[in-house]
Simulated scan of single mutants.
Amino acid sequence: MSIPLVSPAEWWPLWLGAALLVGISFLEDLVGLPIVGRLIMHFAAASTFVIGLLFDQIGLGGAVIAIVAVVWMTNLYNFMDGMDGLAGGMSAFGFAFLAIAAWLAKSHALALMSLSVAAAAGAFLLFNFHPARIFLGDAGSTTLGFLAAGLGLIGWRQGVWSIWLPVLVFSPFIGDATVTLVRRVFRGERFWQAHRAHYYQRLVLSGWSHRKTALVEYGLMMSCGIGALAFQKASDSAQLGIMGFWVLTFLGLGYGVSLVEQGRGRQGA
């Protein structure tokens, strides 16, 4: 709650959007709300941030893309908050690497904001790691996703980092949620309903413990963060190589999950 008080005054659209999300998501946690109503508020929060803080720099077309991206990041964080310690760990690692990147670029305000979120997530993770004693709920997960997108876009527009740095930092969540959603859409499933088709859920269903799955995910998050810092300092050709490496890595990891499932199926046969 104290983070907005020490942020630059001109960032007020970010915190107003976050407040809208906390309010609507808290109501969802308490009484449940229709998905259409929640999405309208998600777009309202994203529009408040993008139009209030970025519109003059990116124009109408860029604003539309940014709003959709913020809404997607807001929701995918909620989708991925399905296992003890996962979203908390992604926040602790992800915002910590944003803080490092901002500090190296001498953007101290952005570094402080990112570090503050990372520290709060780390403290939360102490009680959220399996077996969890406290949980994010929609109010926590959607707000963290919103802040990940918001701080990522602020850093991009300030020239602190390439747009690909925050994408790579949070790619374990972005990749899992996006690929899972696309697969469910092509299968004709009701993608907005609860399910257990995310890659981390499939590992647990295949026999991996929550603790093992979370620790492997932490290793992936750490590797992506280091890769993002290397990407920021690399030449154009090296950046292409880094991105290609991670695309192939995620494809390989997806195939690896399928092999784990097949192995579990053979054991149960």
Results as ranks from 00 to 15, higher is better:
Ile67Asn: 03
Gly145Glu: 09
Asn128Ile: 07
Leu165Gly: 07
Ala46Tyr: 01
Ser209Gln: 02
Met113Ala: 10
Phe173Ile: 09
Gly207Thr: 07
Phe49Ile: 13
Gly145Asn: 08
Leu151Gln: 05
Pro34Asp: 10
Val204Asn: 01
Ser209Cys: 07
Val50Arg: 04
Phe97Arg: 01
His210Lys: 03
Ser237Met: 11
Pro13Ile: 11
Gly159Phe: 11
Thr249Ala: 13
Thr178Ile: 00
Val36Ser: 11
Leu112Ala: 11
Ala9Tyr: 15
Gln193Gly: 03
Ala45Trp: 07
Val185Ala: 03
Ala121Arg: 00
Leu60Ala: 07
Met221Pro: 01
Gly23Pro: 06
Arg133Asn: 01
Phe49Tyr: 15
Val216Ile: 08
Ser2Trp: 13
Gly85Phe: 04
Ala44Arg: 11
Asp176Leu: 00
Ala194Asn: 12
Leu104Phe: 10
Val247Trp: 15
Leu5Val: 04
Gln158Tyr: 03
Gly23Asp: 10
Phe26Ile: 14
Pro34His: 10
Val185Glu: 04
Gln158Arg: 12
Val68Gln: 09
Gly256Phe: 03
Val260Ser: 08
Ile51Met: 09
Phe135Cys: 03
Phe95Ile: 03
Val117Asn: 03
Val70Gln: 04
Ala123Gly: 07
Met222His: 13
Ile100Leu: 09
Gly219Phe: 05
Phe79Ala: 14
Tyr200Glu: 01
Ala214Ile: 12
Leu104Ile: 13
Val6Phe: 02
Gly159Gln: 13
Met222Asn: 15
Arg211His: 04
Gly252Tyr: 06
Leu136Tyr: 06
Leu30Thr: 13
Phe186Pro: 00
Phe43Met: 09
Leu251Tyr: 03
Leu251Thr: 07
Gly94Val: 02
Asn78His: 12
Ser107Phe: 00
Ile65Cys: 03
Arg202His: 09
Leu151Cys: 01
Leu5Pro: 05
Asp236Val: 15
Ser114Glu: 05
Ile154Ser: 02
Ile134Glu: 03
Ile226Glu: 11
Phe170Pro: 00
Gly82Leu: 15
Pro4Asp: 13
Ala102Met: 02
Ala18Gln: 07
Leu220His: 11
Phe49Ser: 08
Gly94Cys: 05
Gly152Pro: 05
Gly175Pro: 02
Val257Tyr: 01
Pro131Asp: 06
Val31Tyr: 15
Gly241Phe: 02
Gly150Cys: 03
Val160Tyr: 02
Gly89Phe: 14
Phe26Asn: 12
Ile65Trp: 10
Ser116Gly: 08
Ser237Gly: 15
His210Asp: 04
Phe170His: 00
Met80Cys: 12
Leu21Asn: 09
Ala197Val: 11
Ala214His: 05
Met113Trp: 04
Ala102Thr: 06
Leu76Arg: 01
Leu76Val: 15
Ser223Cys: 12
Gln232Leu: 14
Tyr200Cys: 08
Arg196Thr: 13
Asn78Arg: 13
Ala102Arg: 01
Glu10Ala: 02
Gly175Asn: 12
Ser162Gly: 14
Pro172Ala: 04
Ser237Lys: 07
Met80Asp: 14
Ala121Leu: 00
Phe129Leu: 12
Gly263Asn: 11
Ala44Thr: 13
Leu151Trp: 06
Asp29Glu: 12
Leu115Lys: 01
Ala45Gln: 10
Val216Gly: 05
Gly152Thr: 05
